[in-house]
Simulated assay, not measured.
Amino acid sequence: MSLSFEIPSAPVAASSDGTGFPVRRVFCVGRNYAAHAREMGRDPDREPPFFFTKWAETVVPTGSTIAYPQETQDFQYEAELVVAIGKGGRNIAVEHALEHVYGYATGLDMTRRDLQLAARGQGRPWDTGKNVEQSSPLGLIHSVAEVGHPATGAITLTVNGQTKQEADLADLIWPVSDVISFLSGLYRIEPGDLIYTGTPAGVGPVVTGDVIVVEIAGLEPTTITIGGPPQD
């Protein structure tokens, strides 16, 4: 059967072993650091983390200049540890969850915060705030064979060299194994899925020309420049 038009291919992320990692889906964990939950006006003891999704096409590589999106006056950064899934499964036990990980990377969940908060206040989905073109920058994916399973270590974000976010992976409310286990009870996870595991406190706005750098101990950093509005 011929197609009415060509469909863009799925993004392929770079891995440290020189191979490409085809991105299938993007899952994000909300409020997975207690201090960030509090800065967003929530109580992490009463409201555990949850998931939202983003299109695979929102993933862009480190070194990119991303457009400042339309319809927002408050475009914000969120530094994240990203888990790359290499083995599918459903209803995965916590003790076997890490067997499904291909590797880890630094990343960003860029957010139209004003649209997100407006939707939250009206009890509506977050899609217009979160699922935004170029909003999931991703660093080099390091395989488990290279870096193991990082459970501790500094995670930091700077804007123009000034530290804005600083925490430790040990501060995650739900560690990676719990995240994978819980997510696999909601969906069958598949190779190519990415899980953005949540952001520390200190989120804030950026403007055109800002340079954002996310660093996590043992992983290559993600560096992104904020450009002007989208150009079609």
Rank of each mutant, 00 (worst) to 15 (best):
R188W: 07
G202W: 09
N160L: 07
D127I: 05
S143P: 13
W174F: 01
Y196D: 11
D193W: 03
N160K: 08
P137F: 08
Y187H: 14
D168V: 00
T197A: 10
G129I: 03
G204M: 12
K130C: 01
T208I: 08
S181T: 09
V147A: 07
I173Q: 08
L194E: 06
A151M: 02
A217K: 06
I180D: 03
P125Q: 13
V159M: 06
L157I: 14
A170M: 06
D178P: 00
A151C: 09
G202T: 12
G148K: 04
Q165S: 05
T158D: 10
P150Q: 11
V176L: 09
P205A: 12
I173W: 00
I141M: 04
W126H: 05
T197C: 12
L194Q: 13
V214C: 05
H142E: 11
L172K: 00
F182W: 11
G161F: 14
P137G: 09
T199S: 15
V144D: 08
T163N: 04
E146D: 08
P150N: 03
N160Y: 06
S135T: 03
D178V: 15
D171F: 09
I212Y: 04
Q134I: 00
V176N: 10
N131I: 03
V213R: 07
W126Q: 03
G153F: 00
T152M: 09
D210K: 11
A201V: 11
L157H: 05
A154K: 12
T199P: 06
Q134A: 10
S135R: 01
L172G: 04
G204V: 03
V132S: 10
T208Q: 13
Q162P: 00
E190H: 09
T128P: 00
V207E: 14
G153H: 06
G185V: 12
G139S: 04
A217P: 00
V214T: 09
D193Y: 10
T158L: 13
V179Y: 07
V159G: 07
W174H: 12
G198E: 04
G218Q: 05
D171I: 01
V211R: 10
A217F: 07
Q165A: 10
V159K: 08
P137H: 09
P137T: 06
F182K: 10
E146F: 03
I173M: 04
V147D: 09
G209H: 12
G209I: 05
P137Y: 12
V179L: 14
G209E: 06
G209K: 12
G218L: 03
D127V: 07
H149L: 13
T128V: 14
T163P: 02
K164Y: 07
T152N: 09
G218I: 03
I212M: 15
L169I: 07
P205I: 02
S135L: 00
T208V: 15
K130G: 01
L169G: 06
V207L: 11
Y187F: 14
L183I: 10
V213T: 15
D171N: 14
E133F: 13
N131Q: 12
A151V: 08
N160I: 08
S136P: 13
E166F: 14
V144F: 08
L172I: 11
Q162R: 11
I180R: 11
